[in-house]
Design a protein around this nucleic acid. Sequence first.
RNA 1: GCCCGGGUGGCGGAAUGGCAGACGCUGAGGACUUAAAAUCCUCCGGGGAUUUUUCCUCAUGUGGGUUCGACUCCCACCCCGGGCACCA
Length: 849
Amino acid sequence: PSKPKYYVLEMLPYPSGTMHMGHMRNYAIGDVVARVKRMRGFNVLHPMGWDAFGLPAENAAIKNKTHPRTWTNNNIAQFQRVLRRFGFSYDWRREISTCEPEYYRWNQWFFLRMLERGLAYRKKSLVNWCPKCGTVLANEQVVNGGFCWRHEDTRVESREIEQWFLKTTAYSDQLLDDLKQLEGTWPERVILMQKNWIGKSQGAKVKFAVMGVKGAKPIEIFTTRIDTIYGATAIILAPRHPIVDKLLRGPMNRKPQPPLKAKLKQLDRMRQTSVKTEDLATLEKEGFFTGRYAKNPFTKKKIPIWVGNFVLMEYGTGAIMAVPAHDQRDLEFCRKYKLPVRVVVQPKEVESSKSKAEGQKKSASVTGSSRQVGEEAFTDYGISVNSGPFNGLSSEEAIAKMSAFAARKRFGKAETIYRLRDWGISRQRYWGTPIPVVYCAKDGMVPVPDKDLPVLLPPDPTFLAGETYAAPLQVQTGMADSPLATPEFVNTTCPKCGGPARRETDTMDTFVDSSWYFYRYCDPHNDKAPFDPAKVAYWFESPDAESPGIDQYIGGITHAILHLLYSRFWCKVMRDLGLVKHDEPIARLFTQGMVQKGGVAMSKSRGNVVGAEEMAQKYGADTGRLYTLFAAPPEKDLEWSEESIEGCWRFVNRVYRLIERHGEAIANAGSFDFGRSPMSEKERELIRRTYQTLQRVTSDFETRWHFNSAIALIMELTNDIYALEPLEQGVRPEVRKEVLEMLTLMLAPMTPHLAEELWEILGHPDGLWNAQWPILVTGQLELAREDEVEIPVQVNGRVRGRVKVPAGSAEPEVVRVALTLPTIAQHVNGKRVIKQIYVPDKLLNLVVG
RNA sequence: GCCCGGGUGGCGGAAUGGCAGACGCUGAGGACUUAAAAUCCUCCGGGGAUUUUUCCUCAUGUGGGUUCGACUCCCACCCCGGGCACCA
């Protein structure tokens, strides 16, 4: 605790079947950082745990008729064994597993806090539904463009069922605005992806009165282009818009007549279309006229109300105004159904075309009404035309004035909407955290009191009994079938009235588990609270750190949106609960590249995994670590190559042979005196190369994260030492010791086992794990400097020769020497030197002409 | 369609406006060995001149530009990878 703290974390793994080199790379990067920081005097927190709930465990359990817990715990044991074998420096005392009640009870606890604050709620929402399975499917289980993965002849339906949500949208603005705090420390593209995901859109909502239907509420539309409202030639509703039925049937709710019947059929089909977005993208636009009209509040003219399959109920208000002249989708729709196209925005005169040279003042007059609209809508900003009192305004001005006008007349207002939606956390699955509420006939939905947490998963899920879930319970509970729906679990008593009640059978999305686990590491065994705020404050809010949060988080880009967004949301909720004081949980984020084989990411399903344990078996853990660090820069994808790993294996052995050869002889040597006694040429060279390498490796580790070039530098040093063999001739033991010790220390973060072994050979029986990173001091720094430098000499930017001069030589001296070179003289001869550029100790360029 | 990355030898890659190809792999040749493995040494972008040595020239996706000098900065385009998307 006397040292500054440093929290380095790799994203926790899902313990699936095999741990492969893709996993390993992630941990190797994190472990280098952890070890370097430790060597540099930090108090490092570097924990590991298991994202242990989830679907694959359940599927494996169904397939093998075993319990998900058994399958998961076996995998955890395997993963742990491999991680230990690779020597990653984790604090195993802090290990967590999200499927343990000691962990997931706090998911429930957080859920209840959110429920109290209105941040958790239940609502009907659209889901993928397979009628044959009688259950909800995850998007991933919808295959072949809309069919069930288990019943490939069955089209997945879109259904509305009650689901639990967390109100991420309550934090839309903060989630967007606080991204600014992450600029420079998070990858730019992750910030951008989150920005797009939140999707802030500024526009206006406008109400259109429905004509001729008694009691019909006005239809509210959202638009970012209120300035085009004079060009609106229809209103188009989402098929699911609640007003559609009323418009079609009218106030009497008559029996459908033949044309109406056809429309209802079409509507039904449109509503049944899968909610999968990929399908929507390829869908042909279609729709029908409802037979009703709305009044455009600006023009006071009536325009037809249509239903269109391309309008989404989930975005905006579920209704749009169609402005075919200025929106491509509207144009396509209106052309198909022969709706009128009305131009209301004219392109601005391009400034540069008002050429002064021509001396002509081009007329800015508007010829809008006669303008032809072709296949492409004009969607840019311009000048309003055919827009009554707003004619001649720029689009920007028109948007401001028309929004204000609408607000004054009370039929609309400027509004900002977001693409971000609330987080649906309900899963009709077994292997997850039970949602801690019960339903009572008298008291309705009742939260489970804190004292009754955790709500434990029933030990025996229904699916272990057979293929189908317990059907009678569906009738009994009226809920969607769920593997939790056993009478023992469902039937309980109401915490309020003590009467009979039934439990919620949904479990939570596993992203809940990973949204806050990194706080739990600070206090993993607390059974009174998710964590002690003081302990979290130490690791997250130390005043010494450059900014609050995990100092360095490392993981794949695949989690750029979901996991990282949910974690940010959770942090803000915790802050508002008074548990933490910071706004953002992750100070610095690094997204490492994938390990690929055959151009695609390693995965068990593709069958291209290279097992981590096999590699350790074959080449040793250190070679495996070294290879994943050396083969590519950490942020780039890495194509697995068995031949390249051989090269690392050779290097590891080469270093070992070198030190083994000299180690015993120099183990008891005294310490190097920084050259206060005279040095041989060979000693001087050795020491200089070693110190220079240290300086560059330090910079590669600390500031640039160029692990691959750091390793290249160490390889070069090793080659240089070999080139000076035999070292016994002309190199004193203490100099050899200095060089070989530094080589060992530099390797330690990457190949810790090798380094420990070498350290012992070099006469340090106490081990290297606690050694300090070497820092050059006065005396050593001078030795790192070159006395003589070789300077490339250019003539007109092309290298024509090199000169060797003492370091720090003055420009005239360098020029004088350069001109003595025949190749230089040849190019300069007979010409005049117009200019000379000299970069001290680096380069000389003579410009002749 | 919009938004991000990225294009350098046979391959992975290095070079933060200053010697393009470090380091490693592969390949070729040699040493050691009865032999093999291991190890060690030499060479390895294209073209040309000179033949022991050097020198010239082309070359970092393509075409322009800025600069004494560009893989690096700017503009346009091509290709590859990724993200988002009938988002009103």
